[in-house]
Design a protein around this nucleic acid. Structure first.
Length: 513
RNA sequence: GGCCUUAUCGUCUAUCGGUUAGGACAUCAGGUUCUCAUCCUGAAAAGCGGGGUUCGACUCCCCGUAAGGCUACCA
């Protein structure tokens, strides 16, 4: 109860070890919305305590991933804040100080065991079917003697763990969890390179940064007792712990590259998924609102989110769901916005531009209306920007050479009727003033529909009237709707001329048969 | 191996002891349509097993089973 009165503060604490993982993104989202819900701050803290795994450039990618879906941390290296530095390698003296404090109080001890001894120990334990654990060998060392040895020898500092004590905590998602301290290893707190391990750093930083809710992946449950011990040793209040269920591969193992693309930037840069859909998708793995809506904006989550509606069971990463959401979000997006998103996506320097995309970029200033029209027409059958990029190809490339079979096959079209309808449509197009077409895509399509329908000869069915012409114009038996196609193509320079010549060719082809 | 966690349609999930177990995605079948897509309608599809508690259990408890996580001077 008391906890509720405190200011809510959450954080995401990724390590800069490569491409940001979708799991990290999801954890960030949950943290972010808990903070926003409670009117508190969300911080980004970078945990760069493992120098061996660090990958240059990771940091920028973390920012990029978060900002892509609209999460702008309130605090962090790039964002400012009163609890910095937000980079752990800049806080080394802090950790050392607190470690010494622990040492003095006897809650931690120096350990001089060599990696070799540790390996041997572990092998021995495994052979005897014992749990692999540190044997507290160096705990027996005299305190003062150890301290003086530490001046010239390599050492680590280990956590002293009480014997046979049940450590309990109440997880906001999983409920009551108890783990016996006998299961807890004398965890290394300070490494021999002078860096803290995650366990020490996370507790110190979370406390110093006044983090009220520690929301992280389920894989941390088993090390939570170590953290609780540290809070106790330091005499600090516990935060609320909430362990999120994991995201799984289709084979139910922990989400990994082997089965799925785990990099957030894959979805952003390579595929061009809709960020709103990504956010929605991630949130709905584990959480459901009381009332389900179709599309969720960030502000909806901030309003509706609550930790007690987060489920405890893991969720499988189902790309089909993401696809359908992305489609939904793109289709309901404002066309101006979509066009800009598409242009931005193409402009990304990491993106290898296709020829079609280069053409599109040329057009974006000359005839912006044409660009919008292409996307408008293509998006109903696309889930991603990449798919749209492939989809607009047919507006640039030459129509494949007409084949008689395509015009007549599997439709049982009467040749005479086909010729007639092509003539009708051709002359209708010829009479059109394309500069006076409605500006808005949807309006243009409906105008074209009405216009050509009004010219439809009474004795011809819809299929007889439109099918051969559509195939002749698009060059494909399976293509988009003819009016959709025309609504774009007629905006092109010489588009009308091309279509007319196209139809004349088709007519000749049919007549010669 | 030990410890921890989890268990409802294929997938994400609703249900907080009494329901014809609901929705969404995916699938399939119809409909609209110039083909495709969109759209509309419909169908099929689920409580891991065994014990309790209870008038009554998907729901609470226990035991199995299965899956996953952790078991580093990684996070």
């Amino acid at each position: 109860m008391e906890k509720l009165d405190k200011t809510i503060r959450t954080r995401i604490a990724p390590s800069p070890t490569g491409d940001p993982h979708v799991g990290t993104l999801r954890t960030a989202l949950f943290n972010y919305f808990v903070a926003k819900q409670g009117g508190g701050n969300f911080a980004l803290r970078v945990e760069d305590t493992d120098k061996t795994r660090e990958v240059p450039g990771s940091l920028e990618k973390i920012y990029e991933s978060l900002e892509w879906i609209g999460v702008f941390p309130d605090e962090g290296m790039k964002y400012g804040g009163d609890f910095g530095p937000y980079l752990q390698s800049k806080r080394l003296d802090l950790y050392q100080r607190y470690a010494n404090d622990l040492l003095e109080k006897g809650y931690a001890y120096y350990c001089f065991c060599t990696p070799q001894r540790l390996t041997n120990l572990r092998e021995e334990q495994e052979k005897n079917h014992l749990p692999p654990r540190y044997d507290s060998h160096c705990l027996k060392l005299d305190k003062d003697e150890a301290a003086s040895r530490a001046k010239n020898e390599q050492y680590v500092i280990r956590l002293k763990v009480p014997e046979d004590e049940v450590i309990k905590f109440n997880d906001a998602i999983k409920g009551e969890i108890e783990i016996n301290s006998n299961e807890v290893d004398d965890q290394v707190l300070m490494k021999s390179d002078g860096y803290p391990t995650y366990h020490l750093a996370v507790v110190i930083d979370d406390h110093l940064m006044k983090i009220s809710h520690v929301i992280r992946g389920e894989e941390w449950i088993s090390s939570t007792p170590k953290h609780i011990l540290l809070y106790r040793y330091f005499g600090w209040d516990l935060p609320v712990f909430a362990h999120l269920p994991l995201i799984l591969n289709t084979d139910r193992s922990k989400l990994a590259k082997r089965h799925n693309n785990t990099s957030v930037l894959y979805y952003k840069v390579e595929q061009g998924y809709h960020p709103g859909a990504m956010c929605h998708f991630m949130m709905f793995m584990g959480w459901t609102p009381k009332e389900v809506k179709e599309c969720y904006m960030l502000s909806d989550f901030a309003k509706d989110f609550s930790l007690d509606r987060v489920g405890a069971s893991p969720a499988i990463f189902d790309i089909a769901k993401l696809n359908s959401l992305s489609h939904l979000y793109f289709v309901s997006e404002d066309i101006e916005k979509l066009t800009q998103d598409f242009i931005d996506w193409i402009s990304d320097s990491r993106h290898k531009k296709s020829n079609v995309e280069k053409e599109f970029m040329k057009l974006k200033n000359e005839t912006p209306q044409l660009c919008k029209a292409m996307l408008e027409v293509v998006r109903s059958r696309c889930n991603t920007l990449l798919e749209m990029s492939v989809g607009i190809e047919k507006f640039f490339n030459l129509i494949p050479k007409l084949v008689l079979d395509d015009l007549t096959l599997d439709t049982k079209i009467n040749i005479a009727n086909a010729i007639h309808s092509i003539e009708v449509i051709n002359s209708a197009i010829a009479k059109m003033d394309v500069t006076r077409l409605p500006e808005n895509s949807a309006a243009r399509i409906s105008w074209l529909t009405d216009y050509f329908r009004s010219k439809q000869p009474a004795h011809l069915s819809g299929r007889d009237y439109l099918h051969p012409t559509r195939v002749a114009i698009t060059g494909e038996r399976v293509s988009m709707n003819m009016f959709e196609y025309l609504s774009v193509f007629l905006l092109k320079k010489d588009g009308k001329k091309e279509i007319i010549s196209r139809l004349s060719d088709a007519k000749k082809l049919l007549e010669n048969n």
